[in-house]
Write a protein that binds this DNA or RNA. Structure first.
Ligand code: FES
Ligand code: FES
Lengths: 130, 130
DNA sequence: AATTAATGATACCACATTAGTCTCATTTGT
DNA sequence: ACAAATGAGACTAATGTGGTATCATTAATT
């Protein structure tokens, strides 16, 4: 299993590239540099824009720019955008709420691991990658 | 995204239950206790048998028993059986091998996290869950 | 005002993975 | 012989991933 999907991967690369450019960056530039299919790249950028990671500018001379500082953009957040909340397991019983939640050892142990994972992921920002 | 699938989850629960029983356990017993669909449970147990986690006995009075000690059965191994090797990301370029592998910061950072994750997962055994 | 170069929004499609079901064969105790 | 158990493998449904395609909107250039 993969913990990081292409969506996320491309998004991270795009953000790194954009963070290194003071000017706004167009899809075409990113496509050329990263070798990602154009329509797919567009979709990813649009999503980052909706989630306020990027600012976008329409029309001639338009493109994308980081909305926040690269130091404030966390990998874990990008993962959440494209892969949903990262969770070890949602408990299995057909009816969503698990009666056993309190005393479930697996969940408890896994919870600890989850926390550590997050702690580490939180320390990785676009700035630290670029 | 879920890090643990139902397969794995059910397998872990089944193993926990079996580990608490000195006697061999039948599918029907597990189905009753865990509320997992019978054919699915069967498939999971068969797979655990093939991977030498369980011993199986056919015929009347048959069923399943742990093959190894609960202290020696690691969650990470069960995950690998049902979810394949756990990997943060396989690099994206269409042609599998990535020319950038050496100097890729993302991969490096992620590699560290991966290692830590494994270290933690390796310490969780069936014994520690049951 | 028309053109052109950019993004926004949305619907669609192909493939892989996950989560199962179903059927028949085989083994073994009674 | 029969019943009670697993083994093996084909099949199906739902979901997630990785895209494509189309049309609408905005804004600078001419
Ligand atoms: S959370 Fe439901 S049994 Fe663990
Ligand atoms: S491993 Fe290929 S770019 Fe990071």
């Amino acid at each position: 299993m993969k913990l990081i999907t292409r969506n996320t991967d491309y998004a991270l690369r795009a953000l790194c590239y954009i963070s290194k450019n003071k000017n706004i960056v167009t899809v075409d530039e990113l496509v050329e540099k990263l070798g990602v299919p154009r329509p797919f790249m567009r979709k990813i950028l649009q999503r980052l824009n909706k989630r306020k990671i990027l600012d976008s500018f329409k029309g001639q001379g338009g493109g994308f720019r980081l909305k926040a500082l690269p130091e404030k953009i966390y990998v874990i957040e990008i993962m959440r955008i494209f892969q949903g909340k990262v969770v070890l397991n949602r408990c299995f019983l057909k009816k969503d709420v698990c009666p056993n939640k309190g005393k479930c050892v697996l969940r408890k142990k896994i919870g600890i691991i989850e926390d550590n994972l997050f702690k580490q992921l939180k320390e990785i920002t676009i700035a630290s990658l670029a």
